[in-house]
Design a protein around this nucleic acid. Sequence first.
RNA 1: GGAGGGGUUCCCGAGUGGUCAAAGGGAUCAGACUGUAAAUCUGACGGCUUAGCCUACGAAGGUUCAAAUCCUUCCCCCUCCA
Length: 433
Amino acid sequence: MDFGSTRAMSGTLIDELRRRGLLAQVSDEAALNDHLASGSRTLYCGFDPTADSLHIGNLVPLLTLRRFQLFGHRPILLLGGATGLIGDPSGRPDERSLNHSEVVAGWLERIRSQVSHLLDFAGDNAAVVVNNLDWTADLDVISFLRDIGKYFSVNAMMQRDSVRSRLERDEEGISYTEFSYVLLQSMDYVELAERYDCSLQIGGSDQWGNIVSGMDLVRRTLSREAFALTLPLVTKADGNKFGKSAAGAVWLDPAKTSPYSFYQFWLNTADSDVVHFLNIFTFLTHEQIAELAAALGNAPAERAAQKSLAAEVTALVHGGAALASAQRITTALFAGKLDALTEADFEQLRLDGMACTGLTAADAGLLAALAECGLATSRSAARKLVADGGVRINGTLQTDPERQLDFTDALFGRFYIVRRGKKNWHLLVPDQG
RNA sequence: GGAGGGGUUCCCGAGUGGUCAAAGGGAUCAGACUGUAAAUCUGACGGCUUAGCCUACGAAGGUUCAAAUCCUUCCCCCUCCA
């Protein structure tokens, strides 16, 4: 893995994080600065498997772990095989429904594979991946209550925001299960402190309470130094929630969000957010980001900053080959030269992961085809789209809702490239089956 | 247990017998302007074999030529009192 160009950074790691807008809270900044400056330290961040994939919001702490690694520290990526079975009440207005343990275990493995290549597993400060189920699965209740529970005051736990907000809502409440979550997470910190000499836990700002509880438990049970640091919630200038595209959440799993869609998500970043995101989601230097910010001011139409952001993040998450594919599709679709594409280019688009549907004779009607390939939610919606002038095939505006797609006018006799609106594309080919 | 208020289309929320697929706002989609940006403006926004038809206003029945609107029973939620 090439960490080369990002090495030369001035100031402390904390300064660097602050400069990038990546610092929400720190437990004792001066002491942590000294701690980090005086040796290679071990830190961790936990991720609970609450879905079959992580999403781009999880990228912030993931990449921050890597930033610590670049500064010579050892990151531990903790997967919540146990805590994922319980449910974290932090930041949740309502009780979670419990997932089956086999389901959670399956999600954990998928997350493990998508997360692992973001860190460096070689060298002196090689990253480590652990699963907290390893030290909780065989834990007995009595030991838990005596060894861990004794350190937690219910009076204090009741004061926690995540608990109090639930108690104040008559219709919600909080189960004993979720109430106990913080004990498990705190136990993780102690466990990692003992096993790996871990002395720092990071996480999203909603994790501050959990992290501080763990830090206290380490100090009290092990009498060791322990620190807490949180990262801010990613916000957008227009106030909308970050991380949602038209299709919903943006996932790290390429099967759920294709590398092309992923690339497009970043490419569409608003001007007012792009510099902020470059700082948070890329490893570009401040000089490089300053250049891009200047370019944004001088030639906004070029969108150099957005292109860099999209390229950097896509390469980080999906790799160089996937980035190249995403860029090929983008160029083909948005350079406005569909006619210039060769037959081989179309095959490449399919290989690159462009959305493609095989069309059967039954779906040959334009409306049926639009509904079938997902560009419209129903035939009625498709009819309205056509009436609104929102559908093009091979660049030609479609006005007849009754038209049949028989491929006689398809490119190379078998490709219809359908466009809905400005940015939604789909390839239609004759059904092979 | 007692008294009162309420459940409306993705969300909020108006509507108290026909002019209601149902105001208004949000979200979403399309069009215009642009830079695959933001803002703004315009249109659409239950489904279908689309000048029409079907299904919808917590559930089930009923009254009526006609019900989201009236009646009955049931389910759920909120507020106050005990």
